[in-house]
Amino acid sequence: MRLKSTAAATLTSVALLLGSASLAQAAPTDLPSVEQSDFSDPSSLIALINPTTQLSPEDYVPENLVTVPGSSDKLRADAAAAVEQLIADARAAGHPIKLISAYRSYNRQATLFAKYQNQYGTAYAERISARPGTSEHQLGLAADVGYSSGKCQLHACFGDTAAGLWVAKHAVDYGLIIRYPEGEEATTGYKYEPWHVRYIGTEHAQAMEASKVSTFEEYIDLLKGQAKEDTSAEDAEKAGKKSESSKSAEPKKEKAKQEESTTTRQKSSENSSIDDLLVLRFLPPFRDWSFGF
Rank of each mutant, 00 (worst) to 15 (best):
E234R: 03
S105K: 12
V279S: 05
R179E: 07
G146M: 10
S56C: 05
K267I: 12
K252H: 01
L278S: 12
K242T: 00
W166E: 10
Y199H: 13
G175K: 02
Q54I: 14
L176W: 00
V197Y: 01
L48V: 02
G240D: 14
T187L: 15
T262S: 13
S101F: 08
V167M: 04
F216G: 09
R104C: 11
R265C: 11
I46D: 14
E209W: 03
S273K: 13
Y174W: 06
K224Q: 13
Q258T: 04
A8N: 11
V34R: 14
G201I: 10
Q266E: 12
V167L: 02
A79V: 02
Q153S: 10
Y190T: 01
Q266G: 02
I87P: 03
A26Q: 15
E35L: 06
G164E: 00
S33L: 14
W195I: 05
G70W: 10
L141M: 08
Q206H: 15
D221G: 04
S37T: 15
D38A: 15
K224C: 03
G150A: 08
G19N: 13
D160A: 15
K267P: 02
T188G: 07
G183E: 11
L99W: 04
Y120K: 09
S273I: 05
G189K: 01
S243I: 07
K255Q: 06
V197S: 09
R287W: 11
I87N: 02
S261M: 04
I46W: 08
F286P: 02
S290M: 14
I87E: 03
K253D: 03
S40G: 10
R198F: 11
I220P: 05
D230H: 05
R104H: 06
G159T: 01
K241W: 10
G240F: 07
S243P: 00
A205F: 14
N107Q: 15
L139I: 05
R179K: 14
A27Q: 05
H137E: 13
K257C: 00
Y116C: 04
P42Q: 13
E126D: 07
K212I: 00
